[in-house]
Amino acid sequence: MIFKRYGFSRSTYYERLKRDTMPDKYASLIIKKFESSRQTYGYRRMHFETVKAGFSYCEETIRKIMGELGLKVDIYSKHTSSYHSYKGKVG
């Protein structure tokens, strides 16, 4: 059989076949709506919005889904938002 050729058990083979046909359990999550949005939602703000909309998923789940969708905030960085002491022309 094919599962013996690739070196995994029979149960793993059939479990993976079953997993591919199962529907996405996060399909109704509000994150899908923000996928095409131009707003900058990080995982904390996205978690707040999903809780406000009635979904009770933890922040780790929100981060995982945002990673799968390729959603991330690009405009904020610890290198660009550092402290600057320059106050203009002195004297």
Score class of each variant (00 low, 15 high):
Met1Arg: 13
Met1Cys: 01
Ile2Asn: 03
Lys4Asn: 03
Arg5Trp: 06
Arg5Glu: 05
Arg5Lys: 08
Tyr6Ser: 00
Tyr6Thr: 02
Gly7Gln: 07
Gly7His: 07
Gly7Trp: 07
Phe8Gly: 00
Phe8Cys: 04
Phe8Ala: 00
Phe8Lys: 08
Ser9His: 10
Arg10Tyr: 07
Arg10Asn: 12
Ser11Gly: 10
Tyr13His: 15
Arg16Cys: 03
Arg16Glu: 11
Leu17His: 05
Leu17Arg: 13
Lys18His: 07
Arg19Thr: 10
Arg19Ile: 06
Arg19Ala: 12
Asp20Gln: 15
Asp20Gly: 07
Thr21Met: 14
Met22Thr: 11
Met22His: 05
Pro23Asp: 14
Pro23His: 11
Lys25Ala: 06
Lys25Trp: 01
Tyr26Glu: 08
Ala27Phe: 11
Ala27Asn: 13
Ser28His: 15
Ser28Gln: 11
Ser28Asn: 15
Leu29Trp: 15
Lys32Glu: 11
Lys32Met: 05
Lys32Phe: 03
Lys32Ala: 06
Lys33Glu: 10
Glu35Val: 10
Arg38Met: 03
Gln39Gly: 07
Gln39Val: 09
Gln39His: 13
Gln39Glu: 13
Gly42Leu: 04
Gly42Trp: 04
His47Met: 06
His47Gly: 01
His47Phe: 10
Phe48Gly: 02
Phe48Ala: 08
Phe48Glu: 09
Glu49His: 09
Glu49Gly: 01
Glu49Val: 07
Val51Asn: 04
Val51His: 12
Lys52Asp: 07
Lys52Gln: 12
Gly54Pro: 06
Gly54Thr: 05
Gly54Trp: 05
Phe55Trp: 09
Phe55Ala: 07
Cys58Ser: 07
Cys58Asn: 15
Cys58Ile: 14
Glu60Ala: 14
Glu60Gly: 04
Ile62Phe: 08
Arg63Phe: 06
Lys64Arg: 13
Lys64Gln: 09
Met66His: 02
Met66Thr: 01
Met66Glu: 00
Gly67Val: 05
Gly67Gln: 06
Glu68Val: 10
Glu68Ser: 10
Leu69Cys: 04
Leu69Asn: 04
Leu69Arg: 10
Leu69Val: 06
Gly70Lys: 10
Lys72Ala: 02
Val73Trp: 00
Val73Ile: 08
Asp74Met: 00
Asp74Leu: 00
Tyr76Ser: 06
Ser77Tyr: 02
Ser77Lys: 06
Lys78Ser: 12
Lys78Gln: 14
His79Asp: 14
His79Glu: 15
His79Met: 12
Thr80Tyr: 13
Thr80Pro: 00
Thr80His: 12
Thr80Cys: 08
Thr80Phe: 13
Ser82Gly: 12
Tyr83Pro: 07
Tyr83Asn: 14
Ser85Asn: 14
Ser85Gln: 14
Tyr86Ser: 13
Tyr86Val: 11
Tyr86Glu: 07
Tyr86Phe: 15
Lys87Tyr: 11
Lys87Cys: 13
Gly88Gln: 14
Lys89Cys: 11
